[in-house]
Amino acid sequence: MQPESAMTPGLEVTVLVSVGRHPLTGRARRADQDARGVELARSLADAQVRLLHAGMRDESSEAALRGYLGMGFTELSLLEQSEGADVLPALAEALDAASPHLVITGERAERGEGSGLLPYLLAERLGWPLVSGLAAVESVEDGVATLLQALPRGQRRRLKVRLPVIVTVDDAAPAPRQSAYGPARRGAFEATAGPVSADDEWASWHVQPARPRPKRLKIVKAASARDRFKAAAAKAEGGSGQVLTDVTPTQGAEAILTLLREEDVLR
């Protein structure tokens, strides 16, 4: 984190938080990336941070959301939704009304559709720019934020963007602080009834636990220690990929279908 004194006073930040799901036990918890988003917001000087959640309110989700309150908040705004509702319209309306300078959220939810599309759809609807995969917010001056975007293999890209902006954080953002029981227990939910729009598409889907697919083995043919190290440190790059340029949508779709069949995703 860099010069925090350079922040504009009264920077309004909204963090979109969701109910997470532990990968091993499936228990509700604060979602990891969203918690990183909250941590990022907490580290901004002179920022007024507001937590916003749209979703169903029940015992397990409440316990999970209290995990965010335990990071040092007194309240969390809750847009109550029915089960399986599409939260996009409700969030868009709430953000439009509150018009914060900065909206922070994780890349994708840990339960539900988890497509990672929500930030993009929100940005489209609000007409705001979106920056994905943020590692840090370096400064905010005169309505312009200097952001550090995380790229693969530890690379960073510095971006300047005019506020308001939606940013998403991934695992490159600082790890979230411990959630303390006391503030989590005392924190209040400020519930507002937003518009509820049923998601018919989602309702017709059949959801089942994913079976872990075997990992593709990396075959390393290295002669020297240096090569072996490079191979170990390198990201898996599919060598057999093909780049299609100037093809019709039908050809593209067919190529994708062929690949999916080869990989046994479609049968």
Partner: peptide
């Protein structure tokens, strides 16, 4: 731990 959320080292991870 309960009020400050300040368990040091790997303490917070263990509790989580």
């Amino acid at each position: 731990t309960l009020e400050e959320g300040a368990t040091p080292g790997k303490g917070a991870e263990v509790i989580d």
